[in-house]
Structures are given as structure tokens and as C-alpha cells.
């Protein structure tokens, strides 16, 4: 049964060129957005790996989303399109695991969209609140390792 009063833990994989800057803008515009989200900066959402989404969930995140540039506006041309495909694939993995695929998502925005950043954060947090806590949820401490996991993969320079 969903617990609509809980505070979701959400990991956001944000592109350096758009969503991460949009978050800054939202801050300077003094827009309200939930404190539930933890951001991990990526040089491009094209750097996002399927394993990152899984690791975030495994660590107990209630939801994970990637926020990349508007389609057609990727600094690296197609990184955000690759990210979308990986998010879609991760959804299929969640389906076979019996976990709601809505716990992962892909959003697009530009660096000028501070309001959109806040809107997405609110919208996704509300979505996860409706879904209830993840069956993998812990005390939240495990989530601290997620950025390190991503950094490790980036350093290894694994092919994408």
C-alpha cells in the first residue's frame, strides 16, 4: 500500500550544460523545489549508463531521473538521445523485476529553464510519493555511494 506521506529519496543525473545550470538558475530565481532530490553532475547525459540507474535504485533511491538537453540541442550532438534509450531499457528491466518502471524517467530542458527544472523536480517527487517507497529503500545512507559509483565508471573510461 502506498505511503503518500513519506519523503522520497530521488537521484537526478543532470547534464552539466543544461539541467545542472537550470538548477542554479532555479536557485537564483528563488523558485521552490523539493529537497528530496540529490543531483549528480554528468558532462552529458550520454555518459549515463544503465548500471548507474540500477545502482541508484539498489542503493535505496525511490526514484531516479536523468535530465539532459532539449532534443537536438545536445552539446555532444546525441548524448541525450542515447540517455533516453538507456532509460527506456532500464524501464524494461524494472518491469521484469516487478518494480514500477515509472521510478525511472528521462527529462529534457535547457539551461535557461529554471522554472522547468523546479516543475520537473516537483512533478517527479509527487509521482514517486504516489508510488510509495521503493521496496529497496534503506535508511538513505547507502545513497551517498552513488556519486562515487558513477565517478568510478567515468574514470575507468568504459566504452558506452
Amino acid at each position: 500500500m502506498a505511503d503518500h506521506d513519506f519523503e522520497p529519496e530521488i537521484i537526478v543525473f543532470a547534464c552539466h550544460y543544461c539541467a545542472y545550470a537550470a538548477a542554479d538558475l532555479a536557485g537564483s530565481m528563488r523558485l521552490q523545489y523539493p529537497t528530496n532530490i540529490r543531483m549528480i553532475k554528468l558532462p552529458c547525459t550520454g555518459k549515463l549508463e544503465i548500471i548507474h540507474l540500477l545502482k541508484a535504485l539498489e542503493a535505496g533511491a525511490d526514484g531516479v531521473y536523468a535530465a539532459g538537453c532539449m532534443e537536438g540541442e545536445c552539446h555532444y550532438l546525441k548524448g541525450n538521445l542515447w540517455a533516453r534509450k538507456r532509460v527506456e531499457y532500464a524501464k524494461t528491466l524494472l518491469v521484469e523485476l516487478g518494480i514500477e518502471p515509472e521510478r525511472v524517467e528521462m527529462y529534457n530542458m535547457s539551461s535557461a529553464m529554471g522554472a522547468r527544472f523546479a516543475e520537473v523536480a516537483n512533478e517527479f517527487t509527487e509521482r514517486i510519493r504516489q508510488l510509495g517507497p521503493s521496496p529497496l529503500r534503506g535508511d538513505g545512507a547507502a545513497l551517498d555511494v552513488v556519486p562515487a559509483t558513477v565517478a568510478a565508471t567515468a574514470e575507468e573510461g568504459q566504452p558506452t
Binding site: 540500477l54 539498489e58 516487478g98 518494480i99
Partner: peptide
């Protein structure tokens, strides 16, 4: 890469 993903999936399933 796929081995890591599958291991993660199996852990997620067990944990859930």
C-alpha cells in the same frame, strides 16, 4: 557491463 547489470538486477530482486 552486462554481467554487472545482471548482478545488480539479481540483487535488486533479492532485496525487494
Amino acid at each position: 557491463k552486462e554481467a554487472e547489470i545482471l548482478a545488480s538486477e539479481l540483487r535488486i530482486k533479492a532485496k525487494a
